[in-house]
Design a protein around this nucleic acid. Sequence first.
DNA 1: TCATAAAAAGACCTTTTTATCTTTTTTTAT
DNA 2: ATAAAAAAAGATAAAAAGGTCTTTTTATGA
Lengths: 139, 139
Amino acid sequence: MLTNSSKYAVRSVIFLALNSNDKKKYSAKDIAKHIDVPAQFLAKTLQILTKKKVISSSKGPHGGFYLSKKNGEGRLTTVIETIDGLEKINGCFLGLPACNVSNPCPVHHLVAPFRDNFMKEISSKTILEFSQKNSGYSI
Amino acid sequence: MLTNSSKYAVRSVIFLALNSNDKKKYSAKDIAKHIDVPAQFLAKTLQILTKKKVISSSKGPHGGFYLSKKNGEGRLTTVIETIDGLEKINGCFLGLPACNVSNPCPVHHLVAPFRDNFMKEISSKTILEFSQKNSGYSI
DNA sequence: TCATAAAAAGACCTTTTTATCTTTTTTTAT
DNA sequence: ATAAAAAAAGATAAAAAGGTCTTTTTATGA
């Protein structure tokens, strides 16, 4: 459903939402340590998110990645969209090119309600709202 | 969630459940045409399913792949398990190595009910029951 | 017996994903 | 100025996924 890059991205963004701000930044290495993923590989993904302004960064000593207030108002869908695109997550579970409610695959009625609800959850709440609501959980 | 191989496998098996028996067989090429996927690539997957006795085959003219009565009593989970393994579909949506109800990731409560219901649907019914129940749908 | 049809097997290839390593650029504090 | 810290960028590579092509084996029917 999601690539590792995208999973790491979502987890990083939630981590930053809960722990960072424009005064408190985290290096790729630190984030990688916190969420236990390969640091250099994560760095690539964080750079993409930065370039697309999903997260923020600053170079040099005491630099790092962080979520600005504006970043925190973005949506987790945007994170996934930026790294993986939305086709993968929205595509038919069995790979039918034209699967929809009027031309469903045999598992469409099982999958669609989940997907719709999932997409709603991660697109109706801001990154900050979502992260704080789920702050008790593991990342 | 599923690889293409596994998606093709599920669709092929449903096709065979609805259209084949020990008197009526389909070549890999025919099946590929019906479900519109690459024939040679599908053949590989069908051969694995055959070797693991999830489906049946016979060589030579008028040979092909089919579902025996016994095959039809198998489960779709077995198809996925044989091609992809179950780790992929059961693994944490965000990639946490130890995500479960007592140590959930932030989307566990969104994903787990879907996955449990999905697994129940494709493991409690036989391949034949499932296919016939959903025989109106596209594959 | 022989041509034919089909699975089975194996070699090969391309793309995508997942990484690692190195170098460059920028910024900060000393 | 300079050393250090960090992002950014680029090169390389291994593994997995996705797919094609060729040869071999097996069975059938004429």
